[in-house]
Amino acid sequence: MTPDVQAGAGPVESGAIHDIGYRHYDGERRGRAAVRRAMFVESARGAYGLGRAGRTKVMPALLLAAMCLPALVGAAIAALTGADELPIAYGGYVLNLQVLVSVYLAAQAPVSVSRDLRFGVMSLYFSRPMERIDYVLAKYAALATAVLVLMALPLTILLAGALLAKMPLGEQLPDYLRAMGAAVLLALVLAGIGLVIAAVTPRRGLGVAAIIAVLLVLSGVQGAAQVIATEQGTRDAAGWTGLLSPYTLVDGVAHRFLGQDSVLGAGPPGTAGALVFAAVTALLVAGCLGLLVLRYRRVSIS
């Protein structure tokens, strides 16, 4: 290499030309509430692969599309034929597609928490002005929101289809809101169950398998128990079997307290049944939250 070439290469190699030096930050430093919100937003976006690598978007996108497809078809039929009633009801929509919801939960709950455990990110979180409870609350809210979006989007598509078909808003809105209320409850219950299971293990695959297994087994057992009880002619017992699966549990609560048509099961028997279903739902959410707090108290900062 000749000296001339070296001299020419010199300035190109020196990256310091553009270096304007270190700048200090003396702007706003927000408190725990803002930190929690940032954690929530990042985690909720992450549940759909937003802000993450391309391949993490595939699964949530496919499931969201699958959830919305029947609603789109239903809405399109209603709008094109000018029907005076939706071909699919708001009430049973989510429950009929519960397998998709279960798969989404199984796929994304580990993405939410196992990932942080596995890759050692917890130590970075804990070294910031955030308490462990903030992490738990933000993650819970984020996953519940993500699951809710999965259920709320198709319901909203149905409503849009109904309105396009000139069905009166006054008739559609109450049913839509009932279904949305049930979806909120279901999102809270499912996110709790999913996170409690996923937070046990840093291995994503194990979390996925455990969650899907638990939800499928519970649904299966509930279905079988209900059939048996119905055949035995004990309607009350058939109603009580609704407690066995999160889907029928929330369905029962929505049926008795929101007045939604019960799709699964016979619904909780009597006033006592309604109260028990409501209490179990509340306990489930509170219990999951409590377990998560306990779990994260034991996460070491190594």
Binding site: E28, R29, R30, G31, A34, A38, Y125
Partner: peptide
């Protein structure tokens, strides 16, 4: 994300 978790607003 980490800067936000330290309390910085998103733009900052």
């Amino acid at each position: 994300h980490m800067a936000q978790l330290s309390g910085l607003p998103r733009a900052a």
